[in-house]
């Protein structure tokens, strides 16, 4: 019971989801050629994941650095920002993250995964995890069809990932620099905000262990 860090479990689930989400966004928004993507299965639905080692490493390193902050509930949001050729933001996918109030109550359910059993033989933890998986699946599906409601981006776009912290970013700088050759810097104001943005809500996930 004491060995399991619950924040770590939530961060693992969330970072795994964010990894899939980033790949899907890059595929759907055609940031990279579709030839580098392969169909895989995640959360029981088909997803498109890059098979380009350098890009995959970049995404993994980014999320690996963010994870310690998520564990400590210090991330307010993670943003996948699509930038045009001149590096101006043209589109943002914003993942707002908060810890639901029931988190501490639910601790025991995950620590003792097979107890307590309900009458139909399904443990609370099974149904909890199944519920989380359903939410993650629904969110990935929403991302997979979001191009239907978005305009095309200009050619030659690239992307970056922004991490909005709850406290001033300076306080979290050391915590996020967990990979030696993958330094982080403060984002400039013009990189964070867009002029006259239009907001399109995609999906809200609320479960006992995470809210996005």
């Amino acid at each position: 019971r004491q060995d399991l860090n619950f924040g770590q479990v939530v961060a693992d689930v969330l970072c795994e989801f964010l990894e899939v989400a980033v790949h899907m966004i890059l595929y759907v928004r055609e940031v990279y050629p579709i030839g580098i993507f392969q169909k895989r299965k995640k959360y029981n639905v088909p997803v498109q994941m890059s098979c380009h080692p350098e890009l995959n490493q970049y995404i993994q390193d980014t999320l690996h650095c963010i994870k310690p902050l998520i564990e400590k509930n210090e991330v307010d949001r993670v943003v996948v920002m699509i930038l045009d050729k001149e590096h101006h933001p043209v589109e943002r996918f914003v993942f707002e993250i908060s810890q639901p109030p029931l988190l501490s109550v639910r601790l025991n359910v995950l620590v003792f995964p097979k107890l307590p059993f309900t009458l139909d033989g399904v443990s609370d933890s099974d149904s909890l995890l199944s519920h989380v998986e359903q939410l993650l699946r629904a969110s990935i599906l929403k991302i997979s069809v979001c191009d239907a409601i978005l305009e095309s981006n200009p050619p030659g776009c690239t992307f970056t990932v922004l991490v909005h912290t709850r406290d001033a970013a300076t306080r979290n700088m050391e915590k996020i620099q967990v990979i030696k050759d993958f330094p982080w810097i403060h984002a400039d104001e013009q990189e964070v905000n867009m002029r006259e943005p239009r907001l399109i809500p995609l999906k809200t996930m609320t479960s006992d262990i995470l809210k996005v």
Binding site: E54, L55, R77, T158, T160, L162, H164, I176, V192
Partner: peptide, 29 residues
């Protein structure tokens, strides 16, 4: 959605591989 200022935002110093770099790698293969 714009309520967070730049003072609260971090980003990786390095950029991901560009589309051109990736296309070049594909052509190499």
């Amino acid at each position: 959605i714009n309520r967070t200022s730049g003072a609260h935002v971090l980003k990786p110093l390095m950029s991901p591989p560009s589309r051109e770099e990736i296309v070049a790698t594909l052509l190499d293969h």
